[in-house]
Amino acid sequence: MSARLHATKTRTALRTSARLSAELLLVLVMAAVALWILGRMWPVVWPLVVGLFLTTLTWPVARFLRKRGWPPALAASVVTVLFLLVVGGIVALIAVPVASQSGQLTDGVIAGIQKLRAWAAGPPLNIDDAQISHALDAGIDRIQNSLGSTVTTVVTGLSTVVNGVVTAVLAVFLMFFFLKDGPRFLPWLTRQLPGRLATDIPTVAERGWDTLGSFVRSQAFVGMLDAVFIGLGLWILGVPLVLPLAVLTFVSAFVPIIGALFAGFVAVLIALVSNGLTDAIIVLVIIIVVQQLEGNVFQPMIQSRGLGLHAAVVLLAVTLGGSLAGIVGSLLAVPAAGLVAVVWSYVREQLSDQPQEPETEDGPPGDAVVPS
């Protein structure tokens, strides 16, 4: 009797495991299909993503104007024009000098790598220079082969520029409509969805919006602080290309962990080539101090800066995103991981014995679509 009961329990456990495995496999297949569809729709999805990022940065100003009684269309128009003026000023004052010095920045990085290569070839590492040269030559050959003919390269470059301009224009228009009509989205979505979905999806969308806005604004603020302090340190030491390095530091802040390491590595290489080993060590110390201040001082002062993700999860997400979609994947990996964490947290709440009620703010329902 005991053996029969044990066999029954074993079969039940196997059936349960098989059912869970089949369900997990189905989820993975559906995720793969969703990613494939996303890739096919990327020319439309990418401007939408950029428009959402821009909206998270500009919404506080639009919300301020709307609370002062401005009509939504007028507030969105003013904020959009101000945004374009600010971007135009940045392009005129920063991007043009940075572009003019980009060649020097590239040459400096290459020279720094050559110095490191020469140092690695000597004691105590004694790495065979022939092996290093072979690896570099293989990488260069692969890049050259992937580029194809000169005509193809030129056409690809022109196509990239045109696509970038189209994406920017679409993103600005979408930002305007998000600023103007965004607070109406969740009530409209609630009316369109049946049954429990009318509660679940708007709640997850609201939390996801809060998470996305918190990440973008906090990373922009921290990136600005890093760029200012590190740029001042480079300027005091007399390191060249201060402005390009400061801009690189700011942009790299949107890729947590990896971005800071990359920007710091470039700054140290430039200091090593131009000013010598002593100044390079000083630059490294400045970067470490600024990063420590960011983690221990700036971060507690900025409300809701983090996404609630462990540093190891962030690192793995950035690595996976970069391997799948290059720079764009690295930029979107952490926000995507944060949104996945939001969905999982909500599902876990609903499956628990005592599900937590979603936090709501006082005010009209339409205001829930955007963070305060």
Rank of each mutant, 00 (worst) to 15 (best):
S159E: 06
A92M: 09
L93M: 09
A22I: 09
A22C: 14
A13R: 11
A99T: 13
G139I: 09
G108K: 03
E359S: 13
R117T: 12
H134C: 13
L82C: 11
L315R: 05
L309W: 02
G363E: 00
A62E: 05
S345Q: 11
L26R: 15
T153F: 14
F215Q: 07
R207W: 10
F178A: 01
V96F: 08
S304Y: 07
D129G: 15
R305P: 05
Q291K: 08
T152P: 03
P202G: 01
L197V: 05
L54K: 06
K180V: 08
I327M: 08
P202A: 04
S218H: 00
P240V: 07
K9E: 10
I143K: 10
A120M: 11
L179F: 03
P355F: 03
L54E: 04
L74S: 12
A198S: 13
L26N: 13
P47N: 04
V313F: 07
L351H: 11
D107R: 15
W46T: 02
T360M: 11
R207C: 02
L38Y: 13
T160L: 11
V273C: 07
L170F: 06
T80C: 04
S146Q: 15
R184E: 06
A267N: 04
A271E: 00
L35F: 11
E23Y: 15
T249Y: 09
N126A: 14
G233R: 02
R184D: 10
S304A: 11
N145D: 15
V340P: 03
T319P: 02
E361S: 14
A205C: 12
A198H: 06
I37R: 12
G366Q: 02
A99H: 07
E294Y: 00
G363H: 02
I302Q: 04
L147G: 14
W70I: 08
V313R: 04
L158C: 06
L170S: 06
S17K: 12
V79A: 00
V289E: 07
S372R: 15
V96Q: 10
L339H: 00
L125C: 11
E359C: 10
T278A: 10
S2P: 06
A253T: 03
G223V: 06
L25H: 13
G122P: 05
N296V: 13
A7D: 12
G238K: 04
Q299I: 11
L14H: 14
F176H: 06
L158R: 01
H134K: 15
A32K: 09
A311N: 14
L20A: 12
Q299C: 05
T56N: 09
V314G: 01
V87F: 09
T106R: 14
I127F: 10
F173M: 13
T211E: 01
S304M: 08
R207T: 12
L174M: 04
Q354F: 08
I110F: 10
L269I: 03
T12V: 15
R196S: 12
S149Y: 05
L74P: 10
T56M: 07
L320I: 02
A135M: 12
L93G: 09
